[in-house]
Amino acid sequence: MRLQYPENIRIVSIPCTGKVDLIHILRAFEKGADGVYVVGCLEGECRYIRGNLRARKRVEKAQAILESVGIGGERVQMYNLSSSEGPKFAEFATEMTEKIKGLGPNPIKLNKKKAA
């Protein structure tokens, strides 16, 4: 397939998106990530029944928290695809990268630089 997708994305592999906890997402931002997106299986097709639905709820919670602390909830996003959909994976990566580029860097990082 040899698809191209933006190089700035760091992939963290997990066995199921149900493994993603709220704190994992928040810590990424605390450490300076500009955006986080979770890519899970299609809804209704989770091998563990509710893993991706749980992940969605956690992503929504992370959005609410990031919004309330001034980082911006739109920096977190949940995507769903089937494991054979390589082109979609590349498409999501591009879409998210462009969205985050539009939003600019994580404001925490900017403030840290200002302070230094």
């Binding site: 709220l22 928040l26 928290i65 602390v69 001034g70 980082i71 404001p107």
Partner: peptide, 13 residues
């Protein structure tokens, strides 16, 4: 979670 959220809030400020 709360500690992380508060740290981010104050860092941002």
């Amino acid at each position: 979670v709360l500690a992380s959220a508060l740290r981010m809030y104050f860092m941002n400020k």
